[in-house]
Structures are given as C-alpha cells and as structure tokens.
Amino acid sequence: MVYERGITEMNIDLVSKYKIFVAISLVVIIAGLAVTVFQGLNLGIDFKGGTVIYVNIGKPYSPDDIRSILSSQGIEATVVQVGDNKQDAIIRMRYMENQKEIQQKLIEALKEKYDLTDERFNVDTVGPTIGKDLTRNAILSTVISWVFILIYVGIRFEFKSGVAAIVALVHDVLIMVSAAALLRTQINSPFVAAVLTIIGYSINDTIVIFDRVRENQKRSGKSLSKAEIVNRSINESLTRTINTALTTFFTVTALYVFGVESIKEFSLPILVGIISGTYSTIFIAGPLWVEWNERAERRRLATAK
C-alpha cells in the first residue's frame, strides 16, 4: 500500500520548525488567558456554590413559562432548554441564604404546572465553602501528578525528558482551560476530572515518543544528532500517535453525542485535550528536548573555550 509506506518513510523535519508550533499554541493560550483575566471563567456551582435544577418535563414546553414562575417568586435564575426533544430544562441560581425554601417552592410550582413527580428532578445544591476546597484539590492533584510523573520519567529515562514531558502536560492543561474560557463552557468538577484524564492520556503519548528516542539513541550511538534522532522517532511513531488519538476520539465523541448533559460537560474538554495532547506529543515535547540539549551543549562548548 502506497500511502502506508508513505507514512513510515515520511521524514518531516519537525524539530527545526518548532518555534512555529510553539507560537500557534501560545496564540491560543494567550487568547484564552486574556478572556480569563478580563471576563473570568464560567465557573459552575461546584466552584461558586448555588443550585442547579435539572428537570425532565417530558413534553414540549416554553422556557418563558418557567421564567415567569421564577419572576413571580422573585427568584433570579437562568433557564436553558436542553435534551433530545428540547423537553428538559436546566435552571441555575446563585447561592442564597434561604436556598432550601426558595428551591423547594420552585420545585413545587414546577411539579404543579407540568404534573411531575420527584423522579424527574435532579437537584444539586452546593454551599459556597465547597468551591475553595475543590479549587485547592484540583490544583494540588494536578501538581502532585506532575511531580510523580517527573520522578518516574526521570528514573526510567532522564531528567530532561521528564521536564520536556511535563512542559507538554502544562501546555495541554493551559489549552484546555483556554478552550473552556473561549467557548464559555461551564467549569465544574467533571472538568477537573477531564484535565486529569488528559494528563494521563497525553503523558502516555509523549512517553511512547521518548521510548523511541531512547531506543534510537542506543542504536545509532553518536552518528546522529539529537535533532535527527527526535525527528526520526516522531516520524516512526506517527501512525501510532494518530491511530490511538483516533480510537480514543471515536469513543469520547460517542460519549459526547449520546451522553447526558453531565457527560457532555466531561467529554467536550476531553476532546479538546486529545487534540492538544496529540499536538504537544508531536510538535512540542520532542523538539523542546532537542532545543534544551543543544543549548546545554553550546554552553558547554562556550565554557570549554
């Protein structure tokens, strides 16, 4: 098959162009961070506290009817129409002192209007203190996973590979946060889980490349430069990188398409993360390792003189 041979014998020079790839990522990240700074992230109740009522009305309805119930009760909340047949509603409100009574009154009104039972309601109420812990745990667990991965890669490979792999991971997390900021998606605890999943996925991807580098280095000795070795390794692993990204992409897309709202909230950032993870594996981690090694080499030569 012509095209398969094409892939294996493909030798795209990725290393020398790495500045372009880094620049592309930086544009996305800076845009995302700018939005984050000026508009803030769209944090959900898990972080900010508040109540989300998800109700399956089970027949066509107008969200304006729910809005008028809300305003008649003096409740400030947003209503979004969701579901396959647009028969579900998500009502979101901020945390208030007498939250319980307010939401109970609203639920009773909805039950009466649409003739519903408790079975059709999901009600999530989160106090304002939980968010702080979640933020702390999210940051802590992300950083701790990086530290352990750095240690493991440092032992199995070398310290510089570990750092390059971690930079790729930081890149992925930043891209995911930026995408969430730009798309204005709600950030709740599923987002945190998605980020940690991608850390697990992307490191997996990067390690496969470094494994190739390790092997090619051993085989070629000093006959090839670091840039040549990395180029060859990335190219040799390219089919695998793409195929694995594809199979994972298939299953997560299925989750996004068929899953319920909370699953969508989780699978969308994962889809972004898979793209970012594949990108950082091919274009960022390896070239960065080369650049760092070459710089160290130049410095060594400079001091030797």
Binding site: D118, R120, T125, G127
Partner: peptide
Amino acid sequence: QVEVRTIG
C-alpha cells in the same frame, strides 16, 4: 449541609 444532590 454544604452540598446536597438529589437524583431522580
């Protein structure tokens, strides 16, 4: 109660 979730 700092977090209450009910699932129908």
